[in-house]
Amino acid sequence: MSNSNLFLKSAFVRAPLQNGVGRYVCQLQRIVLKFCKSHGGSRGIRDFIEQDLVNFAKQNPSVVVYLKPRRHRSPAVVAEYLNGDRVWMSMHLKTHSEITKWIEVLRTQQGDVSGARLRKYQYTDHPSLQGPWTPFTFKDPELNVAQLPDPKFGANNRIPMSATEKLRIMFEKQKISDEEVKTGE
Rank of each mutant, 00 (worst) to 15 (best):
E185L: 13
A11L: 05
D85M: 02
V77D: 00
I49D: 00
N3K: 15
R117K: 12
P141A: 07
S4G: 10
I103N: 01
Q51C: 07
V145R: 10
I99D: 00
V13P: 02
H96M: 03
N5V: 13
G111Y: 08
H39I: 05
T124S: 09
K94Q: 13
A155P: 06
I31L: 15
G115I: 08
V54Y: 04
N157A: 11
E142G: 12
H126C: 03
N5L: 14
A15G: 06
D112I: 07
V65T: 01
F7L: 14
N60Q: 08
R70T: 12
W133C: 01
N19C: 06
V87Q: 06
R107N: 04
L143S: 09
R119H: 08
V113S: 04
Q109N: 14
Q174K: 15
K175H: 12
S62K: 06
K37W: 01
E185W: 12
T124I: 01
F35P: 05
V13S: 10
R119N: 13
D112M: 09
G154C: 04
N83H: 02
P127I: 02
A116H: 15
G44P: 08
G40C: 10
V63E: 00
V13L: 10
T124G: 04
D47R: 11
H96Y: 08
I103C: 04
D125Y: 04
L8F: 14
P149G: 08
G41P: 03
T183D: 09
N3T: 14
C36S: 15
D47K: 12
F171D: 11
L67F: 01
V77C: 09
F136A: 07
T100Q: 10
T164G: 12
V105M: 06
D52F: 00
S114Q: 13
A116D: 08
G22T: 14
G41E: 09
S38V: 05
V105R: 14
Q59T: 09
S2W: 06
L53R: 05
I99G: 04
N83L: 05
N144F: 07
E80H: 08
W88S: 05
H39N: 06
I176H: 11
P141E: 05
W88K: 09
V54E: 11
L8S: 11
H72L: 12
Y81A: 02
G184N: 13
K9V: 11
F35R: 08
V113R: 15
Q59Y: 00
R23V: 09
V13I: 12
G22M: 13
I45P: 00
L148G: 02
I31F: 00
P135T: 05
G184A: 15
N19M: 06
Y24R: 08
P75K: 06
Y81K: 02
V13K: 14
K139P: 00
E179L: 15
R43G: 03
R14F: 12
Q147H: 10
D85F: 05
K182A: 15
E179N: 13
Q109K: 12
K175S: 14
N5M: 10
S114W: 07
N3P: 03
I176C: 05
L17F: 09
Q147W: 04
Q29D: 12
